[in-house]
Design a protein around this nucleic acid. Structure first.
Length: 463
RNA sequence: UCCCCGAUAGCUCAAUCGGUAGAGCGAGCGGCUGUUAACCGCUAGGUUCAAGGUUCGAGUCCUUGUCGGGGAGCCA
C-alpha cells in the first residue's frame, strides 16, 4: 500500500477507507484507558491528522511510550468519522511503526510557543512548525505562480550566470569568487595577478541577471530570469539578505508605461494565485501573524496602483506638513520614512513612482527629453517598501556611452552590452522583483530571515 | 557601518538600593479524561554570554569583546 498525503485525506478521505500515512507527531494525548490520540503532520498541510491508537494495535504500550513530540511514525488503518470536535475524519490505527524517536529532554521543538529568533537558530527543525511549514508552502506556491504568469504569456525562462566577471550596474558590493590561495597571497604581500585566477580575471557572484537578460530580450523576445542574487553589503535589517531570489523580466519594444502595466498586473496576479492555492496557510497568517494581511492583499489585488512621477511625490511630501528626519527636496533619493508616508498614510496602497532624477539612478536607464530625469520606476508597497525596481533601458548608443562616462564606467568592460545598441537596437524595459520581499507582503512576517529557508546575512551562514 | 536595547533553567521572562537565583511554559513521574493550546498534583532542572576591573560582597556597577533584537543607511 502506498502512502497518502494527509492534506488529501483531510480534503476527500472517506469513512471506512483503508489508508497508510507517515509523518511527525506534533502532540500525543494519552489515555490510561488503553488508547491515545496522536496529531500527525506530514508537511502537506497546516492541519494534521488525528490518529487513534488503542491496545489492539500490536506493540501498543511500547510504541506509545516511545512516541513523544517530534517522533516519526508510519500508521496504517481505517478512516472514520470523528465524534470529537475539530476534525471531520480521523484515522483508527491497525498498525503503527515508530520510525524515529525524539528525546523530549533534548528535542528543542516542544509543544509550546517559540520565538522566531530561537527558531532561526534551529533552521534545520523549524520547518516542522506551523508557521515555517506554511511559509514553505506559500513560497512554493508563489514561485509556481511566477512561472505560470510568464509562461502563460510566452516569456522564455533564461538562466543567467551566477558567476560573473562584469561589475554589472555597480549595484552594491559583490562577493568575490576565486581559487587563488589567499593564505599564500597574504604572506607574499604583492599585487594580486588575477590572470592567474580561475577565470583569468576577477570574478564575482552576480548582483543581477539584468544585463544578460537584455541579450535575450533583444534576440528571442520576452524573457525572465529567476534565481539567486548576491549582495555583500553589510546590511543588518529586516528587509535585506546577502543571498536572495530575484525575478527579472525583460521585454523588447516595451516603454516605461508598458513596463509599469506589466509590473502591476504581475503583482496582482501572483498574489491572487497564492490566495487561491494556499487558503489554509493564508488564513493562519491572518489569524496568528498579521491580523490585517488578507484585507491588505485584497485591497492590493482589487485596486489600481497609484502612479506618481517622482517630482509630484516630492511636492506631496513637501506639502504634507510632516516632520521628516531627512529633509526632502528635488534630486535626493526618497528615504524609507518618505516611502512609508506615501504608501501607508497618504495613499494607503501600492504606489509606482517613476521618472526619477538621473543623478540617483544607474547608467542603463533611459534618459528623458527634459535632461533631468530617467525612465525609472519603483513599486512601493505598505509595510515592506520597495518591492520592484525597474526601468526602460537606454537604447541609444551615444546617450548610453555618455551616461557610462558620467557614472565613471569603462566602455570596454561593457563591449557586449554596447553591441546590443550598435546592432539592431530596440526600445526595451524590465524590472526586478524581490521574492523574499514579496513573501513579507504575502505572509505578514516581519523579518526577511524568516521567509527564506536558510538565510544568509552578515555573520550568519549556518546550515 | 551608525544609533538604541538586550543576553539569567530546554523556551519566554522576573530578581527592589550591590546582600541566600524565581515564575510560567516545556520535560519527568503520578492521577483523570473521546482528547484536541487537554486538565489536576508532585519533582527535577542554573559556570546568570566571555574576559578583565571596582567592592567585604556583583545577575546587578565599569571596560572590552561576541552574539541577538529594533531603527537608519545601502537596495530587491
Amino acid at each position: 500500500m502506498s502512502l497518502s498525503k494527509i492534506a488529501k485525506l483531510l480534503n476527500d478521505g472517506q469513512p471506512s477507507q483503508e489508508v497508510e500515512v507517515a509523518g511527525w507527531v506534533r502532540t500525543k494525548r494519552e489515555s490510561k484507558q488503553s488508547f491515545a490520540f496522536l496529531e500527525l503532520n506530514d508537511g502537506s498541510s497546516m492541519t494534521g491528522l488525528q490518529v487513534i491508537v488503542d491496545d489492539a494495535v500490536p506493540g501498543f504500550a511500547d510504541s506509545i511510550k516511545a512516541i513523544t513530540t517530534g517522533a516519526s511514525v508510519r500508521v496504517a488503518g481505517k478512516l472514520q468519522e470523528s465524534p470529537g470536535k475539530g476534525q471531520r475524519i480521523e484515522l483508527h490505527a491497525a498498525r503503527l511503526n515508530v520510525l524515529g524517536t525524539a528525546d523530549a529532554q533534548t528535542y528543542p521543538l516542544q509543544k509550546k510557543r517559540h520565538s522566531f529568533e530561537f527558531l532561526r537558530e534551529i533552521a534545520h527543525l523549524r520547518p516542522r512548525t506551523n508557521t515555517f511549514g506554511a511559509i514553505a508552502r506559500v513560497r512554493n506556491a508563489l514561485c509556481a505562480a511566477i512561472h505560470n504568469f510568464f509562461q502563460s504569456r510566452g516569456f522564455l525562462y533564461i538562466h543567467t550566470p551566477v558567476i560573473t566577471t562584469s561589475d554589472c550596474e555597480g549595484a552594491g558590493t559583490m562577493f568575490q569568487v576565486t581559487t587563488l590561495d589567499l593564505a599564500k597571497l597574504a604572506q607574499l604581500k604583492t599585487e594580486i595577478d588575477y590572470g592567474q585566477d580561475f577565470f583569468g580575471k576577477q570574478a564575482s557572484l552576480t548582483v543581477s541577471g539584468q544585463l544578460e537578460a537584455e541579450i535575450f530580450a533583444c534576440s528571442t523576445g520576452d524573457c525572465y530570469t529567476f534565481g539567486p542574487t548576491f549582495r555583500a553589503e553589510n546590511s543588518n535589517t529586516t528587509r535585506h539578505l546577502a543571498e536572495f531570489w530575484m525575478v527579472e523580466p525583460e521585454m523588447p519594444f516595451y516603454e516605461l508605461k508598458d513596463n509599469m502595466d506589466l509590473a502591476e498586473t504581475f503583482i496582482r496576479t501572483i498574489l491572487s494565485d497564492v490566495l487561491v492555492a494556499c487558503p489554509e496557510d493564508m488564513e493562519f497568517f491572518n489569524l496568528r501573524i498579521e491580523k490585517t494581511i488578507l484585507e491588505t492583499l485584497r485591497n492590493i489585488i482589487d485596486n489600481d496602483f497609484i502612479r506618481l512621477p517622482y517630482t509630484e511625490a516630492i511636492e506631496i511630501l513637501e506639502k504634507s506638513g510632516q516632520e521628516f528626519e531627512f529633509p526632502i527636496s528635488w534630486g535626493v533619493d526618497l528615504q524609507s520614512e518618505h516611502e512609508r508616508f506615501l504608501t501607508e498614510q497618504h495613499f494607503q496602497q501600492p504606489v509606482i513612482l517613476y521618472d526619477y532624477p538621473r543623478g540617483i539612478k544607474p547608467f542603463y536607464m533611459r534618459c528623458n527629453d527634459d535632461g533631468k530625469t530617467v525612465r525609472a520606476m519603483d513599486v512601493l508597497v505598505p509595510r515592506v517598501g520597495e518591492i520592484i525596481g525597474g526601468s526602460q533601458r537606454e537604447e541609444r548608443l551615444d546617450v548610453l556611452t555618455e551616461r557610462m562616462q558620467e557614472c565613471g564606467l569603462e566602455a570596454e568592460d561593457y563591449w557586449w552590452y554596447l553591441d546590443l545598441r550598435r546592432y539592431g537596437s530596440v526600445p526595451h524595459s524590465g524590472f526586478g522583483l524581490g521574492l523574499e520581499r514579496t513573501l513579507l507582503l504575502l505572509t505578514g512576517m516581519a523579518n526577511i530571515r524568516d521567509v527564506i529557508p536558510f538565510p544568509r546575512t552578515p555573520k550568519n551562514a549556518e546550515f
